[in-house]
Design a protein around this nucleic acid. Structure first.
Ligand code: FES
Ligand code: FES
Lengths: 138, 138
DNA sequence: TTGATATCCTACCATTTTAGTAGGGGAAAG
DNA sequence: CTTTCCCCTACTAAAATGGTAGGATATCAA
């Protein structure tokens, strides 16, 4: 399951997506509007910024805004930044690969199934963007 | 990601699947053969038993064995027993549903995408069985 | 150039989950 | 009636989760 933090990230990004092109949005506004603890949200937005999904401006008139168009930010990217691996096993992860101890990848049947699972999951999560989730006719 | 415990469960079940029909298998044998800490494995097998996937016999000649044929135990079931929900969000889970606070399910775009994701994932995990993972031509 | 505004950064903290360990109780076979 | 083996409760260390606190730093505007 995705962490609460990741769900917060999606909610915040939805808000920013809705305001795309409208200048910087205050953390405090997002916090209030989307009911996300302010200091926790601060942290989340900063991580998204470091991952190059957001930009920010300090001082009066400052705030956060999307660096890319909502159509160009897919859900897989967001999950990877905030939540970590999407695959169900480390030995199957594209971005966070780790070898399984005591298990031979060549013949491992569990791994094969999890690879298929990862592929179908990614096919959706990489295709769906912030634009899709704010214009939710799926 | 699946917990280490879940991976242990799969390994243990694979072993039991390979020995299906051959009488009870000792915990200590599985532990040794699959390199799983014995006392931890004890715990895992017991949970699988309570979930009606395994049966056990005490005393000499005892041990654990599959209650059903390997073709009848699918991976989704095992994951649910040991790991919990398969869906990425509680509001999308079929077996562990919980409402999301501060979010309207009717219009929530995130939920819609996660529902699709859950469906394709389940389609695989419910179809693939222990039999598939021990005869791993996928 | 100074003050107000807002993000940035470091560190801390409580609670829960994970990954085990320890030790004995109790059924069954022989 | 003893050995074998599962069953059960309780404990624990370490990590992850879900936050808070407080100040540093950048920017704008009077
Ligand atoms: S190689 Fe990763 S589970 Fe077997
Ligand atoms: S309803 Fe669950 S994320 Fe919106």
């Amino acid at each position: 399951m995705l962490s609460k933090k990741t769900r917060y990230a999606f909610r915040a990004l939805s808000y920013l997506a809705e305001n795309y092109g409208g200048g910087p949005v205050l953390i405090s506004e997002i916090s209030k509007e989307k009911k996300i603890p302010l200091k926790f949200l601060e942290n989340i937005l900063n991580e998204l910024k470091k991952a190059n999904l957001l930009e920010s401006k300090k001082g009066k008139g400052g705030g956060y805004f999307l660096k890319l168009s909502p159509k160009k930010i897919n859900l897989a990217t967001v999950i990877r930044v905030i939540n970590g691996p999407i695959a169900l096993l480390p030995c199957v992860s594209l971005n966070f690969y780790e070898k399984c101890e005591d298990c031979d990848e060549e013949i491992c049947g569990i791994r094969k199934v999890m690879t298929i699972t990862r592929d179908v999951t990614l096919k959706i999560l990489e295709k769906k963007t912030l634009y899709n989730i704010i214009h939710a006719s799926v």
